[in-house]
Design a protein around this nucleic acid. Structure first.
Lengths: 255, 255
DNA sequence: AAGAGCATTCGATGATGTCGAATGAGTATC
DNA sequence: GATACTCATTCGACATCATCGAATGCTCTT
């Protein structure tokens, strides 16, 4: 792992955590000499990855990051395949629809279809949710090879699953049923139900799910079936041969 | 400028240009040894800045870029101040409204308010337009210190201004009037009108403008005045003391 | 008016990234 | 069905390059 590049990305992560950060704060947080940070930041500055406030001298993320993220979205085949089905799902179920991918123990929302009733329209594409606390995340963890990243399971609400053993048991159920649920484990008043998206290699590169108000929880069977149908259809478009994905306990003997 | 970091960002830029890129293609484009690129990419891979297709081995941008871009948007004070006024402007003028910032000779759209008639709803936040070919860009170039970056002015349509001298003359007008216009210089059938957003230091960190169908061009005076009013109001919220920004021919003697 | 905190610059050190060649897997070709 | 090719990947030695600590200039605060 290239040290300088690793540090550069770490600096971006620090800038991600706070609006305006001083050079010294970054240096302290990363346990580096201020001049070291300065050199890296100047390089990032030259490419627009970070910006500097002209008056205070403090740093924040730059417009180049927005461009990168936007291109990422448009090159994501998963997303383009999801859009149409998400619209249909939202109309059919009356719920907001989300699609997400895994990023190191967190779920990044790559598509958000607002609920038809228009309760809120905040652009939620790009937001990050701890994987263990949302339905999308449980699906992705269940489908991933590494499963849990051995990081502590941060508690978000009173109902967040923080016990690794209990989460692992839940993931087993997800693997068997192809559906994950979550009830106010990330946000009070919000529940979720999600299903895996499978690609040609049998991997689970993403998940599709509903955001359900707690007042409408548990969800009726029709909505659950709609999610299952949509996920299966998208997976087929992605080249998947089986859905839900095959459970792989051991390295398959048939390979 | 840190060499390794610079190369890492360059790699991201290459990945930005094509959906799926092989290691060799990146190495060729950047004139580097494949193993050098590989080392850097592996580091970026570890942070989710790039992703690798499991089957082909090719690379593309990763979900971490989306997260970065999203955080950038939410930490941008400019954007949060623009949202309300953009909505109002769109309703008042019937046009789509955009806000943008400058990124090395290009404009990055940081906010997009669709036109009320709902002609199209593509999420255009994050897209990039050559600064010399759009109204937002002309405003930003006029307000910037470096003016033109001595890069060739790429032609987008038959009406794109590609002559530096003519563009410079246009920028002078923009500085005097506080309004920039563009008629089918970037996209056939699309015209634009924009005004500068000024901050407390008198800089022009962003621009606000309308996207006008060619059929409605030239725009009536009322709409132009609405843009001017919105830009002035937002600038005041940002702490600006004067609008349009003062023209600085020379380093001010009063400093 | 003096002090602190900040970003920034500079130069010497050695740790670190770079390169070229070799490996292995996977695929297309004959 | 076997071969040749492309491609990502690994390894080790060299010298470049990033790193660090101290010093500077600046602005804002006390």
């Amino acid at each position: 792992m290239i040290q300088a590049v690793d540090r550069a990305v770490r600096i971006l992560m620090v800038l991600q955590g706070a609006r305006r950060v001083s050079l010294g704060e970054i240096a302290t947080e990363l346990e580096l000499a201020p001049s070291t940070v300065h050199g890296i930041i100047r390089t990032l500055l030259g490419h627009g990855m970070v910006a500097q406030e002209r008056d205070s001298g403090r740093y924040r993320l730059g417009p180049a990051t927005l461009r990168l993220g936007n291109v990422y979205l448009h090159t994501l085949e998963l997303r383009s395949r999801v859009v149409g089905w998400a619209e249909d799902l939202a109309r059919r179920t009356g719920c907001a629809v989300r699609a997400g991918v895994l990023l190191q123990g967190d779920v990044v929302v790559v598509h958000h279809e607002p609920s038809p009733d228009g309760s809120r329209q905040m652009p939620e594409v790009g937001i990050v949710i701890p994987a263990h606390a949302c339905a999308l995340g449980k699906v992705l963890l269940a489908g991933g090879a590494d499963e849990l990243g051995s990081r502590p399971l941060r508690s978000m609400t009173a109902d967040t699953v923080t016990d690794p053993a209990r989460l692992r048991a839940e993931l087993d159920v997800v693997r068997r049923t192809g559906i994950a649920t979550e009830a106010e484990e990330a946000v009070i008043g919000e529940c979720g139900l999600a299903a895996p998206l499978v690609d040609a290699s049998g991997e689970v590169p993403g998940a599709l799910g509903l955001v359900v108000p707690a007042s409408r929880w548990p969800l009726d069977a029709a909505a659950t079936e709609a999610v299952r149908t949509a996920a299966r259809s998208i997976s087929r478009e992605l080249g998947a041969s089986a859905w839900p994905p095959a459970v792989r306990e051991l390295p398959a003997a048939s390979a």
